[in-house]
């Protein structure tokens, strides 16, 4: 394995861990499609941040675009609650609008924005090793992206460990959570903020579609393998990491997009869990009724 491959896989793994940790909470709240919506909706934010900050000012970009993700969830709620648009239609209308806006901005400012339409969808993870962070003394610290995503991962890990019980309770039983004085709205928007931040940080390297795949796939796989949220978080992070490594080599072999290949591996992982999971797989379910019948006989 050469050094470039190492950096690419490391980036993929970091993104995978960030996305799959948050994804666990998303799918348990039945909000997978809101995650999908956010991952598309941050695009105009990223483009605008590019335009206004001129250079690639990392933190302005992250925060600006992340705010747009939160605005997207707010819009979804607004259309649904205030304008009384059907819930699923409200998600569909909001994210396609924002994403279309983003693509138009990219086409209009094609010269000024260092992004192209395809990159938006499946990223340019292969270029990660090219953008090296050099200190003033000329020391090579490795790719800039790795540092950014690493930073986001640290923030996320702190967020989830410190506020685990709030995230857990508001996801499981919002009514009880409110009754003991937790604000479900606050934790909802904090979680959505975290999802937006992760999406934005991951966007450039892996694109919108892999963000969705990583937010939904590994958590769904883990959900079939365990009955304990803590284990579910760990398993999905592991599954995501494995998928990003395996995806890299698959892409190499097929000479295709790394993000696409990682999604394909994620699909395969889920398929395996769906069929073979010891507790919740298809085979286990087939076997169970037989065991019960035997016990009765």
């Amino acid at each position: 394995m050469n050094i470039d491959a190492f950096w690419i896989i490391l980036t993929g793994a970091l993104v995978a861990i960030c996305c799959s940790l948050l994804g666990c909470f998303l799918i348990l709240r039945r909000m997978a499609m809101v995650g999908d919506a956010i991952s598309h909706a941050v695009l105009p934010g990223i483009v605008l941040a590019f335009l206004f900050s001129g250079s690639r000012e990392v933190w302005t970009m992250l925060i600006g675009a992340a705010l747009l993700g939160v605005a997207c969830t707010f819009l979804i709620e607004f259309f649904h609650k205030k304008a009384r648009v059907q819930a699923d239609a409200s998600i569909g209308v909001t994210f396609t609008t924002l994403f279309a806006l983003g693509i138009i901005l990219i086409s209009v400012y094609a010269g000024k924005v260092d992004l192209d339409q395809d990159c938006v969808l499946y990223g340019e993870i292969a270029y990660v090793p090219l953008d090296i962070w050099l200190t003033e003394s000329g020391m090579n610290l490795g790719p800039r992206t790795v540092w950014i995503i690493g930073g986001v991962l640290v923030v996320l890990l702190l967020f989830i460990t410190i506020f685990y019980k709030q995230l857990y309770l508001t996801s499981f039983d919002p009514a009880f959570a409110t009754a003991i004085g937790l604000s479900t709205t606050l934790w909802y928007y904090l979680l959505m903020g975290a999802v937006s931040l992760t999406t934005v940080a991951a966007f450039e390297s892996v694109g919108a579609i892999l963000v969705v795949a990583l937010m939904v796939g590994p958590p769904a796989t883990a959900y079939l393998l365990t009955d304990d949220l803590k284990k579910m978080l760990i398993i999905s992070a592991l599954a995501g990491t494995i998928a990003s490594a395996a995806g890299f080599y698959l892409a190499l072999w097929l000479n295709g997009s790394v993000a696409g290949a990682i999604s394909a591996v994620i699909g395969l992982q889920f398929l395996l869990a769906f069929v073979f999971s010891p507790g919740h797989g298809l085979l286990a379910k087939r076997r169970q009724p037989v065991a019960v019948m035997k016990a009765n006989a």
């Binding site: 799918i27 039945r30 909000m31 997978a32 499609m33 995650g35 999908d36 579609i209 892999l210 969705v212 795949a213 937010m215 939904v216 796939g217 958590p219 769904a220 959900y223 999604s263 394909a264 994620i266 699909g267 889920f270």
Partner: peptide
């Protein structure tokens, strides 16, 4: 919702 998201992205 999870199944939709998964199938869509994969």
């Amino acid at each position: 919702d999870t199944a939709i998201g998964l199938v869509l992205s994969v």
